[in-house]
Every structure is written in C-alpha cells, then in structure tokens.
C-alpha cells in the first residue's frame, strides 16, 4: 500500500452540476497503490504502511468492494509487522507503536481474521492475548492515559487507539477504563472540546479520539453536548468543508473527525450535510480516483478514506452504511 500522493488531482476535470461519486476509479486507485515501488515517495512513506492498508481497506469496504484487496496477502502483511512484545510496527522492521497496533487489529477485525492472529500471533500468551498485553502495558497506572510506545509520549489519541483495539478484541477489562475516562474529562475545555492533554487547545481530531473513547467506555454522559455541538458545528466554512480548529482552513479529513463527532453527540444535523457532501465530492479525482484535502490538491489514501467515510456518514447513495456511535 503506497502512501505516496497522486497521481490524481482533486476536481481537475470540469465537474457536472450534479456531482457523482466515481466509485470504480476510487477502487482502482486503491488497488494500484502497492504497485508504485518505482517512486521515491513510496519508500519515504513506509512509516505509514499499515495505516495506509487500513485506510484503503476501510474505503473499499464502504465503497462496497471489500474483496478488492487479496485477503491472504493482507493478513500476511499485517502479521509480518508484529513484534515479539505483541505490538505492531508500521511495516516489517519498524518499531511497535500503539497507532499501528490499533490499525492492525482494525484490519484483522474488518476481514474477520482473529483466528489467524490466535494461531500465529506473537506476544506474551500469543494471539489476541499477546496484543492485549502489549496495549495494557502502555497504560499509565497513575493518570489512566496511554503512552504510544516504550518511549512514553502521551496523547489522548492513544487512549482511543488502545480502547478501540481492546474493544475489538473483547479485552477492555484488562485495563483501567474508569481512570482513562477521568483523564479524558480532565482534558475538556470551556468550549466543550478536548485537546491532546489537560490544558491543550480543543482540536477536532482529538475530540474524535476522546468521544470515541468515551463512547466505547459507555460514558457519553460526561460530554457537554450543547457546547461541544456548537463548537463542532462552527467548523463548517462557507465552502461547505470542515476545519479542525477555529479560523483554520477546511480539509476533507475533518469530514470524518468532525462529522462523526457530531454524530456521536446526535448533532450531525447542526451542519449543512448537502454542502459538505458537495465539498467532499469536489475533492475527488473522478478520472484517476482518490480524494485530496482540498480541491486542486494531490490525492492520497488518507483523504480517500476519510472523504468516503464522510460521504457514508452523510448517507450518500451507493455507499455502505456507517455507524459512528
């Protein structure tokens, strides 16, 4: 899976009034990504390979083409990224980190391959247990938050990735969920949003992570829905797209981070879904496939995933339903 951008460019063709989703080109674009080994950028983005696979596969599932990537090769690649400690790296030879461990578990869950993990997985106890133990070892017992890896960086994103992976593995009980929830609450700001850590500015990506974690922990009761809904709805700009923070530029990826957050608090109708849909569609390259952050920019698989996911959330016809809650 190449993380290299292009070759397509968003909105390069004159688009018809009634915008269409170019499903086939998007599928082909994702399928072609691993055949770009002659490009330097393919190698420079190896540190995102496993995430890239997750993004590509998620988009394919939403596009109704879950079998468009070979299942066996996918499983083989995912398992080749696992370390003896049970964690996964971005690619073979890359260090284990929670971000990639979550992607690995999400991929294996998506293609229903936990049995292969149980058979061949590494880590203490092997299989699902091996991965679970790696994740639980990263929880800070005092504060409840999680480190990304052995070097100790902490960020609310890691609480989400830990709880998400553990919930998919049905192993939430091996960590202290209550304490993690307390930590998230300590990151809440006056505007109802959440940042990377206590005292950090509200950021839509972190809000998605914190709400996702609270949702998994079944603690959405702690959220200040009206304030957060107000702040999140103000992320929509005139062009129809969403930004991540006040007075920043819009970007297709926030079509997921913001819109799914609004969905989690039952306020998706507080933004203009039709305008957002049009903005997302303008960010696709209808001929070569793929989505970019904004019209006119190079496409890549990250924005392709979150563009398609945004459309699915907005119930765009032809896409699989998505349950953000």
């Amino acid at each position: 899976m190449s993380l290299a951008s292009g070759p397509g460019v968003a909105g390069s063709l004159s688009l018809p009034e009634e915008l269409q989703l170019a499903i086939e080109p998007h599928v082909k674009y994702i399928q072609s990504l691993d055949s770009r080994r002659d490009e330097l950028e393919y190698w420079l983005t190896e540190h995102l390979r496993l995430n890239g696979l997750y993004w590509g596969l998620t988009a394919l599932h939403l596009l109704g083409r879950p079998d468009a990537l070979p299942r066996d090769q996918t499983i083989q690649f995912v398992l080749s990224c696992q370390h003896e400690n049970g964690g996964f790296g971005a690619a073979p030879g890359h260090d284990a980190h929670l971000l990639y461990t979550c992607s690995a578990i999400q991929i294996l869950a998506m293609i229903d391959a936990f049995d292969v993990l149980d058979e061949k997985g590494k880590g203490e106890g092997g299989g699902r247990e091996g991965v679970g133990k790696y994740i639980s070892s990263l929880q800070n017992q005092t504060t409840g938050t999680f480190a990304g890896d052995e070097w100790g960086e902490e960020d609310t994103r890691f609480i989400y990735t830990a709880l998400n992976a553990l919930s998919l593995l049905s192993m939430l009980d091996i960590v202290n969920v209550d304490r993690a929830v307390e930590y998230i609450i300590s990151c809440e700001n006056f505007d109802g949003g959440y940042g990377v850590s206590p005292a950090a500015e509200s950021h839509s990506g972190q809000i998605f992570a914190c709400l996702g974690a609270l949702s998994i922990a079944n603690r959405m009761d702690t959220v200040n829905v009206d304030k957060l809904g107000r702040w999140l709805s103000e992320r929509q700009v005139e062009a129809g797209g969403l930004n991540g923070r006040p007075e920043k530029q819009e970007d297709v990826c926030y079509s997921w981070w913001v819109a799914s957050s609004l969905t989690m608090i039952h306020k998706l109708h507080w933004i203009d879904g039709k305008k957002l849909t049009n903005f997302i569609l303008k960010c696709q390259d209808p001929k070569e496939g793929g989505f970019a952050d904004r019209p006119g920019d190079m496409v890549d698989v990250f924005h392709t995933c979150f563009g398609v996911a945004g459309l699915a959330l907005l119930e765009f016809p032809g896409l699989e339903e998505i349950d953000a809650r």
Partner: peptide
C-alpha cells in the same frame, strides 16, 4: 500526511528517462 495542501503541478507528471533513472 505527505500531501496536505500539495497542489498538483500544472503539467502531469510525465518524467523523462533521466528523471526516472
């Protein structure tokens, strides 16, 4: 991400043999 805000060059990426090399 590698391509946040990366505008595409006006001409498509048709690289010469030397560039590819």
């Amino acid at each position: 991400m590698a391509s946040h805000g990366v505008a595409r060059p006006a001409t498509t990426i048709l690289r010469s043999a030397e560039e590819l090399q």
